[in-house]
Design a protein around this nucleic acid. Structure first.
Length: 439
RNA sequence: GGGUGCGUAGCUCAGCUGGUUAGAGCACCUGACUGUGGAUCAGGUGGCCGCGGGUUCGAGUCCCGCCGCACCCCCCA
């Protein structure tokens, strides 16, 4: 006798039961459509990579979160931490692929950090990147994809914060802060929304920043901007040379975003936005939803130096990623998830045990006509069969008893409208299709 | 790594100031109901009360430790 095993999943991972999985698929299908609409094609890569591929790309903090182990042959390997580094490896291994190269990849990644709301050890990234061009129009397209994705899923209030790594560089140069403190400085300033001006200044003091540096930073975080243009204007008078390069990048980017139809209301120039990963070099962005308590649902930016590590050749690149779980959670919290629980269109009921074959023939013919059909396989009466359809959220049920068989018709019941009607099979198919696919 | 909270049936939970054989709803199984919605009725399966120790005549209940989970900080999708 086998000992009973306590059923459990690893911390930070979860099962998605059909009700959830159906809605996750709904989100993924929407995103896929948009990626394709912008000219991206799919790419698939292994979940496991050699350690040499993963190591040394993300920065010290992030690298500690990579799942790393030895395989049965003693090879040093790890689970992918994101989809950007594997893409970079693919480009290096296939340098002749036509460029600019646009690809999307919707796949799980793994991070060994501590889970909480909207944060898992295994989660799906919906990643889209453009390799082989320095054009800022590419960055603009990435952001346009983010905007269109969130909008089409039904989010109304969100903002896409944009900045450039060059602006961050300019900030620390202007404030006379050593370059190795670039990340730390950006991170502290980034907390402005949470801890306020006083909080930021206090933390800078505690970390031992020079008074002159703190003064410079105070100048930027106390400035109120009424528009993105204001922010850029401020930047022009504030930053040194490399900061100015970043400012002009942002100007060009804003211009392109207008052309691509991304409304200014959803774009926020945030001169303190930093982003954690080491590989970013130019414009960076992060998208946050309003009215919900969730971390950012999307992030990305330009990483012109990353592919060179693998190939020795320069390949400029930019891209972004949407977090499936966080998008799902956001839709859930805002209560704007579509009301679907199943892909099944119709339940073919079984009038009586003797009628199973008749119902099965009907199910087959409905399936051939393109419907998703569940033939009732239990042994309960009609009442219970309707209860089953109801529980599963199947929108239609068909009755196929002696009366219908005799007249060559079916009785179609609309579970939502609570109405039913006798009709020809073809008519039933038409009614169901109209209801589930729209006009 | 730091902080807060919670662990009782498959799920959601009740169990008052420690006191008999451990409770409900849902789910599941059996039966009744033979053309219509989350049913009703009758019965049933199912619990090392997270684990270990302590206090006590007596612990699901009080104390300590451990483990697990959720959330927050940090960081991130």
């Amino acid at each position: 006798m086998a000992k009973r095993v306590k059923p459990a999943v690893l911390k930070g991972t979860r099962d998605y039961l059909p009700e959830d999985a159906v809605r996750r698929e709904y989100i993924v299908e929407k995103l896929r459509k948009i990626f394709r609409k912008y000219g991206f094609d799919p790419l698939e890569t292994p979940a496991i990579e050699l350690w040499d591929t993963l190591g040394g790309k993300y920065g010290e903090d992030a690298e500690m979160l990579i799942y790393r182990f030895r395989d049965h042959g003693g090879r040093d390997v790890g689970l992918r931490y994101d989809l950007t580094v594997p893409l970079s490896r693919v480009i290096a291994m296939n340098p002749d692929i036509p460029k600019p190269f646009k690809r999307y990849q919707i796949a799980p990644v793994w991070r060994a950090d501590s889970p909480q709301k909207g944060r898992y050890r295994e989660f799906y990234q919906c990643d889209f990147d453009i390799v082989g061009t320095t054009s800022l129009m590419a960055d603009a397209e990435i952001i346009a994809v983010v905007y269109e994705s969130l909008s089409s899923l039904g989010f109304k209030k969100f903002s896409i914060k944009i900045n450039s790594r060059k602006v961050i560089r300019g900030l620390i140069e202007t404030a006379g802060i050593p370059i190795e403190k670039e990340h730390e400085t950006a991170r502290i300033i980034d907390k402005l929304d949470k801890i306020g001006v006083a909080g930021v200044l206090k933390e800078l003091e505690e970390k031992g920043y020079a008074p002159a540096s703190i003064e410079k930073i105070e100048e930027i975080i106390t400035s109120q901007f009424n528009s993105n243009e204001d922010a850029l204007e401020f930047g022009k008078n504030f930053f040194g040379e490399s900061g100015l390069a970043g400012i002009s990048e942002l100007e060009e980017l804003l211009d392109y975003l207008k052309i691509l139809g991304v409304p200014d209301t959803h774009i926020l120039v945030d001169l303190s936005l930093a982003r954690g990963l080491d590989y970013y070099t130019g414009p960076i962005y992060e998208a946050v939803l309003k009215d919900v308590s969730l971390p950012s649902v999307s992030g990305g930016g330009r990483y012109d130096g990353l592919i060179k590590i693998f190939s020795g050749r320069d390949f400029p690149a930019t891209g972004g990623s949407l977090g499936l779980e966080r998008i799902y959670q956001g839709l859930l919290d805002l209560d704007i998830l579509p009301d679907v629980k199943t892909h099944t269109h119709v339940l073919v009921t079984v009038f009586k045990k003797d009628y199973l074959k008749e119902s099965a023939r009907l199910a087959r013919s409905l399936r051939e006509k393109g419907l998703n059909v569940d033939l009732y396989l239990g042994k309960k009466n009609l009442r219970a069969q309707l209860g089953y359809a109801n529980d599963r959220g199947i929108p239609f049920a068909i009755f196929f008893g002696p009366d219908e068989i005799e007249s060559g018709e079916v009785t179609l019941k609309d579970l939502k409208k609570e109405s039913q009607e006798r009709m020809k099979i073809e008519e039933a198919v038409r009614v169901i299709k109209e209801a589930v696919y729209g006009n």
